[in-house]
Simulated assay, not measured.
Amino acid sequence: MSALFEEIDSQNSPLGEISLRRRRMPAFGDRDIYEVKLGDEFLMSSMFVEAEEALSTLGLAAVEGAPLSVVVGGLGLGYTAVAALKDERISELFVVEALDTVIGWHRDEKVPLGKILNADARNHYVLDSFFDLATDPKAGFDPDDPNKRFDAILLDIDHSPTEYLNAGNAGFYTSENLGLMAAKLKSKGVFAMWSQNLPEARFEALLKTVFARVESHVVSFYNPFQSGESTNSVYVCMKGS
């Protein structure tokens, strides 16, 4: 492989071929950039992590008290999970990921943040479908305690509330299924979700059918490919008492 590009791993998955790549772009400095592709589609890049980290910081800032039990839906390259663990109030973090390949990259430390997650005893990988666990009243995010309620659920799986990683995920975005997920939160628990798009009024209205308070945050970051700013958004919702 070229010193500027390496395909670290490529595996079949239920969603198609998923691959992990490392590249260097001299114009962007002396650093490795990690990318994940699903088929021909780019899923994520370590060049742009501000919004994934903001999902944790904004979501957890809305949570009161300590200690905290928190769920992260979607492992990715680990940035949301690592940002969450910087909050010392967290006593346990359950990172739910449907693809064993992605969990394997972290456990085998093929991605940089795997070492951090593996070394933190508060972190627990859960191999399962976030959406199945979220909407099944008999299932739970903690494999050892299906009835456990959580202080926060942080979700970063689909591209947006209307653009899905998998068409089967569309059914989650309803009052009924969001309500089933909210039932797994404690009183005044927080649900936060990342989106690649600006806040969508229709989705905000849907969230308000389930949650007592809904706020939308625009996260801006520099995009060197566009020589300017790009934006993502984070929805932060609080359950009633």
Rank of each mutant, 00 (worst) to 15 (best):
A201Y: 12
N147F: 12
L85G: 10
L117K: 09
L85P: 08
Q226I: 05
I116N: 01
G171F: 13
I157R: 03
M193I: 07
L77Y: 14
S2H: 15
T174R: 10
S69A: 11
A119Q: 07
N147Y: 09
S216W: 02
Y173N: 05
W194I: 03
D151F: 14
K188S: 07
L60W: 13
K184P: 00
E35F: 15
L85H: 13
S195T: 11
R22A: 02
P137R: 03
R122C: 08
S129V: 03
F131E: 06
N12Q: 15
V95E: 05
L127R: 05
G29M: 07
G74L: 06
A61P: 01
G168K: 15
L133I: 04
S187A: 09
H106W: 10
S187H: 09
V214N: 04
S56C: 11
C237V: 00
V190M: 07
K110L: 07
V72W: 15
L15H: 08
P14A: 11
L206F: 09
S187W: 08
R23H: 13
A192V: 03
R149E: 15
S195V: 06
S69R: 12
A62G: 05
F211C: 13
T231R: 01
S195C: 05
L99R: 12
L20N: 03
K37D: 09
Y164G: 01
A61N: 10
K184I: 02
D9C: 05
G228W: 11
S91R: 13
I116S: 02
F5Y: 14
L180F: 13
P199L: 00
N166H: 11
Y173P: 10
L68N: 12
K208R: 13
A27W: 13
P112F: 06
D151W: 12
P112T: 00
A183C: 06
M193N: 06
G29T: 03
K115V: 02
R21Q: 15
K148F: 15
G74E: 01
R24D: 03
V49R: 05
N118K: 08
K188I: 02
F42S: 10
G168S: 07
S56R: 13
R22P: 14
T101F: 14
L55H: 04
L127P: 04
S220F: 14
N166D: 11
D132W: 07
G189I: 01
L113Q: 02
S129N: 11
A167Y: 11
M1G: 15
A152H: 13
V49S: 02
P67H: 09
G65N: 08
Y34W: 15
K186R: 08
G140Q: 07
S46H: 06
Q226W: 05
E204M: 10
V234R: 01
A66H: 14
A83Q: 01
P67I: 04
Y235E: 01
L178E: 04
S195H: 05
S69Y: 14
Y125E: 00
G189E: 00
F130T: 00
M47R: 13
T209C: 11
E97F: 01
A167F: 13
G228E: 08
E215D: 04
E50A: 05
D144C: 12
E97N: 08
P137K: 09
P146M: 02
R89A: 07
G104A: 05
L155W: 12
D128M: 13
R89I: 06
I116M: 04
F5H: 15
F221I: 01
L75C: 04
A119C: 09
V72K: 09
L75S: 06
D120M: 04
F94K: 00
A3D: 15
R213I: 12
E200A: 09
A3P: 14
